[in-house]
Design a protein around this nucleic acid. Structure first.
Lengths: 204, 204
DNA sequence: GCTAAAGGTGCAGTCTCTGCAAAGTTTTAG
DNA sequence: CTAAAACTTTGCAGAGACTGCACCTTTAGC
């Protein structure tokens, strides 16, 4: 999270605050009652703004629940760029994703609530994962660039998709453990299994 | 026996027909104008039914576009069950997914249109992937059962997620080649790379 | 302070989606 | 062949998501 607090004026701070209020209100209410039993009006009321204002912050009710994946995008891309090019792509992605791990662990309570809600509503799960086709596309291009492969080669697309799958799996398991296990550890575990070619654990 | 043709009475045949008409009308119109420039009313009109009827077939406009992934579910699960338990889970999944490959290749034109539409609308891409939330869960359980692992072990979830990523990648590339390349071949390629641990192509 | 920019809000209107009850059609049984 | 049973289609009313627009309030910068 780009949590500059003092650098921003009062205005921007209020915006962040309102945004957060809307997001948490939405999550809390939906966790309690279910997606369809909560209206935007109720969420807005809980955050003490008008319903119209809600839509100034989020284009969709769902967006308030899944959070702003776009915000992380730059961070992940920067982190990826920081990994030496000599490192294999998969390893590079693992390190870049540490960015996401930090963000999630840093706001564990919110994210646990979010995961609980998201896992109860497949529509949202979809959005959370590939919600950012833009981010994935950017990663694919970054991987293509660092490996020197043509951008339409199978490899970049595949590694990124698989890395995403690993992240998702780790997050689901993290949520299942109620945050008890370290997300970073779970992610590393998943990447290790992938790097080993997912050997059948019986014969492993 | 979900897709027998002659076994069904006139009634069911008409239903299938209407359903298909709605789906293709939706795809065609959205491909032309974009998701938000097409209303359910227009789709229904094109399929020559009332708007109310549209919602008797699809719970959502989006659902008419992504198709009924649930229909394939049984097929995939059956195919998976048919693979000898001795086979490693990843290989078993590869074979089970051949079911999907057949279905897609068998209706190539429709699926190419669908992929084109879906790739232009991230929201739909999300749905195409997660429409399988139920399917994925079933696969996870099946893999857990066949490997003898507890259902909350990391492995089943991860293999299924990765297999899904491989399928998605293959389908995107298939669509990118405009159906010119064999989806089955692309999928095998992806699975081979995964089974090898996604080695960085530079280092071999 | 004053002004210009930016956020917040109400309102009207479109579109998605649902429940309900009236038709209309197909199937079944007599 | 016919009438009841079982469906499907449809119109209608209504809730709720979302948008464009005009107006008001707050804030930043002078």
């Amino acid at each position: 999270m780009t949590s500059d607090d003092t650098t921003l004026g009062r205005r921007d701070r209020k915006k962040r605050q309102t945004r957060a209020a809307l997001a948490t209100a939405a999550l809390r209410l939906v966790a309690e009652r279910g997606l369809d039993q909560v209206t935007v009006e109720e969420i807005s009321e809980a955050a003490d703004v008008s319903a119209r204002t809600f839509f100034n912050y989020f284009p969709t009710k769902d967006d308030a629940l899944v959070g702003d994946t776009e915000a992380d995008r730059d961070g992940v891309l920067r982190a990826l760029a920081a990994v030496p090019t000599e490192q294999p792509a998969l390893e590079a992605l693992r390190r870049a994703l540490a960015e996401v791990v930090d963000e999630v662990q840093g706001d564990a309570e919110l994210w646990l609530l979010r995961m609980r809600v998201v896992m109860q509503h497949p529509v949202l799960l979809a959005r959370l994962v590939s919600g950012n086709a833009a981010t994935e596309q950017a990663l694919v291009e970054a991987v293509a660039a660092r490996t020197g492969l043509p951008p339409d080669d199978a490899y970049p697309t595949l590694v990124v998709a698989v890395a995403g799958a690993a992240l998702r799996t780790a997050m689901v398991r993290w949520a299942a453990s109620d945050g008890g296990r370290s997300l970073g550890a779970l992610l590393d575990e998943a990447f290790a299994a992938v790097a080993a070619g997912l050997p059948d654990p019986r014969t492993g």
